[in-house]
Design a protein around this nucleic acid. Structure first.
Lengths: 346, 346
DNA sequence: TTGAAAGCGTTACCAG
DNA sequence: CTGGTAACGCTTTCAA
C-alpha cells in the first residue's frame, strides 16, 4: 500500500512480539490466537487479527518449526521434470498437501545418483515432515540417510523392489509384459525395444525385462534392444529406429520406453516407407498428451499419475498419524489406439 | 545401517552440540568447521568431519535460517505444471540454484487468484531468500505482500506490464503479432484464434491482443476468437475448431494458444476434410516436444524456457548481492514447419 | 483465559 | 584459532 511499509519490510518484519505489544497482551496469547483461536476471548481475538492484518504480519515458520520440531515441509525428489514425466504427480501431490498447509520442497536428480545423495541430504536439513521420492532403487547412502531421518518416506511410481517405508506406484515389469502381450495379440512376432535407458533408470530396465519375459513366454525369439543413455526425445527415437531397422530388418514391432521416443520412431518408419501398423507395430509408454494426435495414433500405457500424487499425500497423512507403512498399487492401463493392431489380423 | 540407528533417528537427531561433545570442542568451533573450514585447525577439522560422518549428522537449517535470517530457500510460484508449460523453467532454475545450495519451494496456483494469494503468504512464512513467480499480473494483495517482504522478487515469463522488482521473460504481445505476421506471410487472410484463455491467464490475453493488432495492421478483417475457460487439451482444440468452422467457414488460418490445442485443431481439420496448410493454416505456441511429430508438423513459437530459468537464478544472485533490479528480455523464436505455409503461395 | 519462562539448534559477536 | 554468550521468533510447559 504505502511506500513506507514497503521499504521497512524485509529487515525487520513484524513478529508475534510486535503484535503482542500493539494489542497489549503477551506473545503467548497472540500465538494461541493463531493456532487455537477458541482458547482466546473473541473480542481479544478480533483485536489481534486486525493488528496482524494492519501490520501485514507473516508468521515465521522457521522459528515455528524449530520450536515445535514439526516443519510441514514435504521434500519431493523426482528424477526428471521433462515431458510431463512426473510433473503431474508433483502437481496433484502439491495440491493435496495444500489442504494441510504443507509445502513442497522440490529437487530433481536428473537420474544422477550422486546428485540424489546430495539433494536428499540437503532436503533433510530442512527437517521435512516426510519425503516423497521417485523410485525404490537408491544408492545405499541415500537409503541410510532416509532411514536415519526417522520420518515417513514415501517411494512413488515404482513398487517393484525393496521399499524403505511406504510405497505408492505400480509394477513396471508388468507394464513391459503388457506391451509384449499387446504386440503379440496384434499379430507381431519379432519384437524390439527402443529408447533412452539410463543407468539409473531402474524403472525403464524393469519394463524392458517385462517385455523380454513376455516375449520369451510366448516362445518368440529373443527381442532386440537398442537403447541409449541420452535422454528420451523424438530425435533419439528417430535415430534409434533407423539404426535398428538397418541391422534388424526382420523386426515387425517396436516397444518404446516413452511416447516421445515413439513419436520419433513413427517418423522414422514413415521416412523408411514402412506402414504402421501394417508392416510394423509400435507401442509407447506414458500416454503423452500428444499420443492421440500423431498418426497413426499411438497405442501406449497410461500410468495414473494424478492418483499416485493424491495417494502419496494420503500416505503421508496416514504415516504421520501413526498408521503403519504400506504398499499401494496404483492401476495403469493400456490405451489401445491405432499403432499396434495389424490390419490383416482382424 | 543397523536398525537401532534407524529407530532412534527422527526424535533426537544429532546436533552440533552432539558433535562438539564427542570431539571435545565447543559448538562454535564445529559450526565454523562447517561454514568456514579454513578457520579451523586441519587436524581438528578432520576429527569433526569424521564425527559428523559417523553420527550421520544433518544440519538443521531451520535453526540456521532463524539465527542467520537467511534461509536459502527460493519460493517458486507457477500457474501450471502440465504440458511442460513451466516444468523446464523450474527444472533449469532449480539446477542453477543448486550450485549455491539453495532449495526450491514450489507452489502451483493453477491460475487461481485466491490460491495465489494464499500460496504466496504461505511461502513467505518460510522467509525465502527470494521469490520467483510466473507473470507480472497479480492481485493487489499479492503485490503488497511481495513488496512488503523486502526480498528480491523475480517475475518470470512475461515482461509486459508493471514489474514489482525484477523480471525475466518476454513480450507476449509480440508473440501474438509474430503469429499474425507469419500467417499473413503464408498467404492467409481470415484469421481466427482458438484455445483456453482463462480469466487469470493474462499472457494468453496479451498474445491474443498481439494477434488482433497484427491482423488489423495488415488491414485484415477482425479476427474471430473462439476460446474457453477450461484448460488447454487436444480435445478442447478439436471441439473449438469444429465449432469455429461451423459458424465461420470463411476462416483460413487458426492461431492457437498452445501446441496441445493446435494438435486437436489439426485433428478436427483432418476429420472435416480440410487440408493443412493448403486450405487452412495453423500456428501454435509453446513448442511442445511433439510439435514436430504431428502431421503436418506444427509451426509454432518456441519460448526459451531453459534460459528463463537460468537467468532467473542469476537475477536472484545478483539482487542478493545488491545489484539493482532489472528487466531481462529473453528471446523466443518462430519455428517454421509445415502447418502454416500455403503451398500455392510458394 | 492468560502470562512467564525455558527451550528448539544455529549463527553472530566479542573476548581471549 | 577457539570459546562464551546472546540472540533469532516461535511453541511448550506450567502457573496464575
Amino acid at each position: 500500500m504505502d511506500l513506507n511499509t514497503v521499504e521497512k519490510g524485509g529487515r525487520n518484519a513484524p513478529t508475534l512480539a510486535s503484535i503482542a505489544e500493539k494489542v497489549g497482551v503477551s506473545v503467548n496469547t497472540v500465538s494461541r490466537a493463531l493456532r487455537a483461536p477458541n482458547t482466546v476471548r473473541p473480542e481479544l481475538r478480533r483485536r489481534i487479527n486486525s493488528a496482524m492484518e494492519e501490520l501485514n504480519y507473516v508468521p515465521n515458520r522457521l522459528a515455528g518449526g524449530l520450536s515445535s520440531t514439526r516443519s510441514d515441509i514435504v521434500a519431493v525428489v523426482v528424477t526428471s521434470l521433462y515431458y510431463s514425466e512426473f510433473a503431474s504427480i508433483v502437481d496433484s501431490l502439491q495440491s493435496a498437501l495444500l489442504e494441510r498447509d504443507m509445502q513442497v520442497m522440490l529437487a530433481n536428480t536428473r537420474y544422477d545418483a550422486d546428485q540424489e545423495q546430495r539433494l536428499v541430504r540437503s532436503l533433510l536439513s530442512w527437517r521435512p515432515t516426510a519425503v516423497a521420492i521417485i523410485g525404490v532403487d537408491h544408492p545405499p547412502k541415500v537409503v541410510e540417510l532416509l532411514k536415519a531421518s526417522g520420518i515417513p518416506i514415501i517411494e512413488m511410481w515404482d513398487t517393484g523392489g525393496e521399499v524403505i517405508d511406504t510405497a505408492v506406484g505400480f509394477d513396471h515389469t508388468a507394464v513391459g509384459a503388457a506391451q509384449a502381450d499387446h504386440l503379440i495379440a496384434g499379430g507381431y512376432r519379432r519384437l524390439a525395444f527402443v529408447g533412452s535407458v539410463r543407468e539409473n533408470d531402474k524403472r525403464a530396465q524393469k519394463r524392458l525385462r517385462g517385455l523380454e519375459d513376455g516375449a520369451a513366454l510366448a516362445g518368440l525369439p529373443r527381442i532386440v534392444t537398442h537403447t541409449d543413455q541420452q535422454g528420451g526425445s523424438s530425435e533419439l527415437g528417430e535415430r534409434l529406429a533407423h539404426e535398428l531397422l538397418e541391422y534388424h530388418p526382420e523386426i515387425d514391432a517396436i516397444a518404446c520406453n516413452s511416447d516421445v521416443v515413439a513419436f520419433g520412431v513413427l517418423r522414422a518408419l514413415k521416412k523408411l516407407g514402412k506402414r504402421v501398423p501394417e508392416d510394423i507395430g509400435v507401442v509407447g509408454f506414458g500416454d503423452n498428451e500428444a499420443a492421440s494426435c500423431v498418426s497413426p495414433a499411438l497405442t501406449t500405457i497410461r500410468p495414473n499419475r494424478e492418483t499416485i500424487g493424491k495417494l502419496t499425500a494420503e500416505a503421508i497423512f496416514a504415516r504421520i498419524n501413526g498408521v503403519p507403512p504400506s504398499i499401494t498399487l496404483v492401476d495403469w492401463k493400456l490405451v489401445v489406439r491405432e499403432s499396434a493392431i495389424r490390419k490383416e489380423t482382424r
